[in-house]
């Protein structure tokens, strides 16, 4: 009884699905954006450790500081990193006094004694403030575009660190034939919809002067800021990997001991 009912239901679904499978498909115009879109370039990163495997690896503190400098001098005009607190910069090697100075350069919302909104200097405990009060203000100031917060950008895109680097170095003036690019947008095949509203932020070598003598090139800026943004997204990266090595080594020994125990316990059964 059940089987006959099941057979009937089964036939319904099977025939329906097969009917859908053999139905002719409408012509789909190939999506040119998909054809033009490029996957992120595969780069080597210090924080990926030996062999660029991502197993071990620590951040290069000097690179993080350079990346922070690029962020401050170039990106922070439009992009916030609102999930990062000034005190987190201690990870980059800044002293509490330096952090206080950095924080003091920013204004955060506050309320005055009359209850009116005002601003005050940020302290180490504050987060990096938003650039625009809200999305509407951002779009009004940016011709309709909404510069996203960058704190999590390298986790919010697949292969994020490589994506950020590729995007920043991927602008091109050679727009392929047949591709429409409005004048207000820029051609960047690493961006998901190819035409990006952000003008190339790293426009020229020498844009940022590095105090430590590293090459002042667009390529270096892109690498450094991509690394910095990897840190903003994953400040615990180094801790995570260190803990991981210790945990897995422990577990390998524990499992080894467990296996020997298992063999001993089972010796009589396996022989019998």
């Amino acid at each position: 009884m059940i089987r006959w009912g099941a057979l009937a239901v089964g036939l319904l679904f099977v025939i329906n699905a097969l009917w859908g499978a053999i139905a002719p498909r409408e012509d789909v115009t190939p999506d040119m954006a998909k054809a033009l879109h490029k996957h992120p370039k595969h780069m080597e990163w210090v924080h990926n450790g030996p062999g660029n495997l991502g197993v071990l690896g620590t951040f290069d503190r000097a690179q993080l500081q350079r990346g922070f400098q690029v962020y401050k001098e170039v990106c922070s005009a439009c992009h916030s990193i609102n999930r990062v607190a000034f005190r987190d910069l201690a990870d980059l090697g800044f002293t509490p006094a330096q952090i206080k100075t950095i924080a003091g350069e920013y204004e955060v919302p506050a309320i005055d004694s009359a209850g009116e909104p005002t601003t005050r200097k940020a302290t180490a405990a504050d987060k990096f403030p938003l650039v625009y009060a809200n999305e509407a203000a951002a779009r009004a100031a940016q011709n309709g575009a909404n510069p996203p917060d960058l704190s999590l950008m390298t986790k919010a895109r697949p292969n994020g660190t490589n994506y950020v680097y590729s995007l920043l170095t991927g602008y091109s003036d050679d727009v392929p034939k047949g591709w429409t690019k409005p004048d207000t947008l820029y051609y960047n095949p690493y961006f998901h919809s190819i035409n990006i509203a952000m003008p190339p932020p790293l426009a020229a070598d020498g844009q940022v002067t590095y105090a430590d003598g590293s090459p002042a090139t667009v390529d270096q800026y892109a690498k450094d800021v991509a690394t910095f943004l990897t840190w903003t997204a994953e400040p615990k990266l180094e801790n995570r990997k260190e803990t991981g090595v210790a945990v897995i080594l422990f577990l390998i020994v524990m499992t080894g001991l467990g296996y020997l125990t298992y063999r001993k316990v089972w010796a009589d059964v396996k022989k019998a």
């Binding site: 422990f250 577990l251 020994v253 524990m254 001991l257 467990g258 020997l260 125990t261 001993k264 010796a267 009589d268």
Partner: peptide
Amino acid sequence: PVENLGSGGERRRDFLYIATAAFAGAG
């Protein structure tokens, strides 16, 4: 099957059990 092993074997097996349990417990 304790009797199947010699006295040395039995002591070895207990040590292994203790070592395993202690190591896991430490974790």
